[in-house]
Design a protein around this nucleic acid. Structure first.
Lengths: 340, 340
DNA sequence: ACACTCACGTTACACGTGTAACGGTTACTC
DNA sequence: GAGTAACCGTTACACGTGTAACGTGAGTGT
């Protein structure tokens, strides 16, 4: 960022420039442009000011404004590092729209993470009004840091809550549990679980596996759960299919519809098929899963409307010292098709 | 955003608080914390200041800092409204990382768009150092607005350049042209083009169609191009398959691997198959396309490394008055498989 | 004629930084 | 012992806003 050259560009116009051009004081400009205090200025000068602002192409300086106001409307959506499907990205888009409607400035922050709470410090420097953070990457210390820097609401988005922060729970264990219940009901007792080797996806895959384990345990059916790492390549899928046969598995949860499709195809290429001998279930309910034959069963997930969360943000921001909220967002439902 | 309550939270510590605690002046605090001017302060006071800052959990105020400095390190990545595939999202992630390494603060702005240049004004308020904007949503007026607000570099990311802005071209017409060349070479003369009805995807689909048309024209083979709208539902795909037969098409470009897969499946369900009577080609080269039988041919696209673009940003930011740059990013290549 | 209100603007300060210009010691040089 | 340089720190201002407090002149009621 070596941007130090003598450039001739005129500096952007300030409200003082507008005031000068309109022949009024800067305060008046501010009153007009922000529609403050109803009848303070006459219609005539309002017009003069507006004309001057338009003429100069005046755009207020957000940093100066929020410095003075002591608050930014910023809402950080941070820590989204994992590649996400259409469900979650649609949810994010909706959330951003809704926050915008509520007067906030939603901003997505990529994984600019260094080590430890370095990224969190960078967030705090922006003095956002609220911070959403997806599952890992926020420690209790990080929450404290943010709160002390003036952030009025810290919300975590993920499987498990973080002390001190409001918890928007998307319990991925439910996804696993839902799939497991279905497979057990179908009489399957030797269940393989496809797990992506990509570490960025562990946030989702680990709790899904845990959910399966818990559900199997709870059912007391004596069923076996077998983790099966998969690389998202055809070769890796072929190996996985071989392992399925060696282990005599009769049920398979695919982490994802994509991973499930990969596994199902590999099974078929190896002479197996679904639902016999192996019942296959995915998650996300992608349209593409319905293109395979047999059609892929899947765990469908739903998230609440963004508007609902924006209202929740309003509430927790209005009352920063209230005890941490806890709210379940995710609802799951199994869509049974031919593959199971 | 009604957040006006009397809350008891202590305001975040300022550099003045640190100075007071360390028993020095605010200037000294600034010198120490920014490592400015080598030997200005003794090692001893440095330690005192650092200790005080740590003790208070001091985090500098980005808005105040950049107000004073007259520049923010912000780089806006704006206007990304269309749902994007793994290729583009990977590219974005890399770009963000690289920008971060170069000392910028990359920030993703969702489609908070209102009408006209309203969104652009909102970007200008942030006084970013540079703005990336994907294809639509930036008019020449918008570019001017940004430049006058102090933005040192405006870059468009898409098929066609915008006057006044640097152009990072990802010419989607090439994708269509590549597919068309392949289909023509395979002897196809009646080519259908699957087009998503989702208006958000028109940014990509329209130029891809145009590329096909241009390639067919250039080849002078007298081939026919038939646009086929598709809804991303199985029902819509079935209708599309029927239309394929009615029009006696012998080639099909699928916009996308996903859309191509949908179409291919529908063709098969209707008794057709690929590559005969209809050769099918997609784009994106998704792994999932290789799961179908026949395996899907596809246009593979490549984008440059993010680091390369970050360096480009450095250059254009250093020299804001240089004439607009123009750079092709996209390279395409056909991966022929069994479906064509 | 005086007090009072009303309508319209302005003056003045604060927000939290960075940094140029300016002291005040101490130690060294001639 | 006076000049001076080196070292270490501070004072003072600017960045662009929002807004509370304060005029000011004209109209109005008695």
């Amino acid at each position: 960022m070596d941007s130090d050259r003598t450039d001739t560009a005129a500096p952007p116009p300030t409200s003082a420039d507008v005031a000068r051009l309109a022949g009024v004081s800067r305060a008046t400009v501010s009153f007009v442009l922000n529609n403050t205090a109803g009848g303070r200025v006459s219609e005539q000068t309002r017009l003069k000011v507006r004309a001057a602002a338009d003429r100069l192409g005046y755009v207020p300086h957000a940093a100066a404004r929020s410095l003075r106001a002591g608050r930014t409307g910023l809402v950080l959506l941070a820590g989204n590092t994992a590649p996400i499907g259409p469900l979650f990205s649609g949810f994010y888009r909706e959330l951003q729209d809704a926050l915008h409607r509520h007067g906030y400035t939603p901003v997505l922050l990529g994984p600019t993470a260094g080590g430890g709470d370095e990224a969190v410090r960078a967030w705090a420097e922006l003095r956002p009004t609220a911070v959403f953070c997806v599952d890992p990457g926020l420690t209790p210390d990080g929450v404290g840091l943010l709160r002390r820097s003036g952030v009025r609401a810290v919300l975590t988005l993920g499987t498990s809550p973080v002390p001190g922060a409001h918890a928007l729970i998307m319990d991925q264990r439910e996804v696993g549990a839902c799939a497991a219940a279905h497979l057990l009901e179908r009489g399957r007792r030797r269940i393989g679980v496809v797990l992506p080797t990509d570490p960025a996806l562990a946030v989702f895959s680990a709790p899904r596996l845990a959910g399966i384990r818990a559900a199997v345990e709870a059912a007391g059916s004596g069923a076996v759960v077998e983790p099966l790492p998969l690389d998202y390549t055809e070769e890796s899928a072929a190996e996985l299919a071989a392992r399925c046969r060696d282990l005599a598995l009769d049920g398979l949860f695919g982490y994802n519809d994509e991973y499930a499709m990969l596994a199902l195809r590999a099974l078929q290429d190896a002479g197996s098929d679904a639902p016999h001998p192996v019942a296959v279930v995915g998650a996300d309910d992608l349209l593409l899963g319905r293109l395979l034959r047999p059609r892929l069963s899947s765990v469908r997930m739903r998230l609440p409307a963004g508007e609902e969360l924006a209202e929740l943000v309003d509430r927790v921001v209005a009352d920063p010292d209230a005890p941490p909220l806890r709210r379940e967002l995710l609802t799951v439902e199994l869509v049974a098709r031919e593959s199971s």
